[in-house]
Amino acid sequence: MLKLKNWAGKATRTGLCALALISANMLSAKEPLKIGYSDWPGWVAWQIGIDKGWFEEEGVDVEFLWMDYVASMDAYVAGQVDAVTMTNGDALVTGGTGKPSVAILISDYSNGNDMVVAAPGIETLADLKGKKIGLEEGFVIHLLLLKGAEMAGIDPSEFTIVNTPTNETPQVLASGAVDAIGAWQPNSGQALKTVPGSKPVLTSADAPGIIYDLLSVDPESLEARRDDWSKVVKVWYRIADFIKDEENIDEALEILSKRVAISPEEYEPFLEGTYILSLEEVLPIWKEAEGLGSVYGSTKIADDFNVEQGVYDEPLNTVQYLDPSLTLEYAESVK
């Protein structure tokens, strides 16, 4: 907040105008908050607030930078953005190997968009025993596979993992080099289109909460500009309410699909596989507890996975990566 020294004597109209001009100039000189976001429905959703001018209405200057997912995390580590949209597991990877962050909101959880897609003739996860699965090792899709194996009573060592960049998975499945792939939308959907007869044998809807999607902020930026980040959080819940109102679905799909250059009809299944969280729905998730129903429990599971996979050597203090305070303050303000 801008603080001005007290002026002695009565303030004249000219003096007040001068103060207003100084204040405006100083505020306009403030750098915009820079946020890296990428092609995931819960993050593309920020486009609604951008297009509808809601950040300007709240009086916060934000610059959203559209990037590939991994590039956005690299940009955060390099200090090129103040915040980035990441999964809770990947936020730990970024922190454990480069630069810590703190999540100030949970936008959604994956509700089917992350999939293990199998070649024709393979009907269940168990049918993949002794077969090859192409996925990007150490990413959340790998964690989903291990969780799915646990739920199905399968020893994951019975799968042969072929390390494959996620954006190459549709082509790799089509080539016949693997029997299944693990990917998230739009790549998982592309695999289903590219290989007729392929089908998902495991999705994130089978383990809700295994993947939470976050807005993670540089701790120094959060401390220095907490009021501005509070306004960003406020806009997010306006976006979430807009999307969840069925009367707005056509407009929402128009905005989201335009951002990724496909039709609203093509985009609709992507949105259906993403559970956007309202303020009321997210509050229980912010409570500290074990298991997938809490972002704390889910993040601890992701931390265990990262250490097991050798992503980093020692467990992290996962609590330091999560800060519900701005959401809780907003919830209090709208009671």
Rank of each mutant, 00 (worst) to 15 (best):
M1R: 10
L4N: 13
W7L: 15
K10R: 10
T14W: 04
T14P: 01
G15I: 13
G15H: 14
L19D: 11
I22Q: 14
M26D: 12
L27G: 10
S28C: 13
A29W: 12
P32H: 02
G36C: 05
D39P: 00
G49V: 02
F55Y: 15
D68A: 14
D68G: 15
Y69N: 11
V77N: 12
A78M: 14
Q80K: 15
V81C: 09
D82M: 12
D82I: 12
T85M: 07
G89A: 03
A91T: 10
T97R: 15
K99S: 11
P100G: 00
V102S: 00
Y109M: 06
Y109D: 01
Y109E: 05
D114I: 07
A118G: 07
A119T: 05
P120C: 03
T124L: 00
L125N: 07
L128Y: 01
K129D: 00
G130P: 04
K131H: 07
K132C: 01
G134T: 07
L135I: 10
L135K: 08
E137V: 14
F139T: 12
L144W: 02
L145C: 13
D155Q: 04
T160K: 13
T164S: 09
P165G: 04
E168L: 15
T169C: 02
P170H: 06
Q171Y: 14
L173V: 08
S175H: 05
G176Y: 02
A180N: 10
G182V: 05
N187S: 12
N187P: 00
G189T: 07
A191Y: 11
L192I: 11
K193T: 10
P200W: 03
T203E: 04
A207Y: 02
I210G: 04
L214K: 09
S216P: 08
L222P: 03
L222K: 01
A224M: 06
D227S: 04
R238H: 14
A240N: 06
A240T: 08
D250I: 05
E251Y: 01
L253T: 02
L256T: 10
A261L: 11
S263F: 00
E265S: 08
E266S: 13
Y275M: 15
L277S: 02
E280C: 11
E281F: 00
V282E: 14
L283P: 08
P284E: 06
K287M: 13
K287D: 11
E288L: 14
G291L: 14
L292A: 05
S298C: 01
K300R: 15
A302D: 05
V307R: 01
V307A: 01
G310K: 05
Y312W: 08
P315I: 09
Y321N: 06
Y321W: 06
D323C: 03
P324K: 03
P324I: 06
A331Y: 00
A331Q: 04
A331F: 04
S333E: 06
K335G: 11
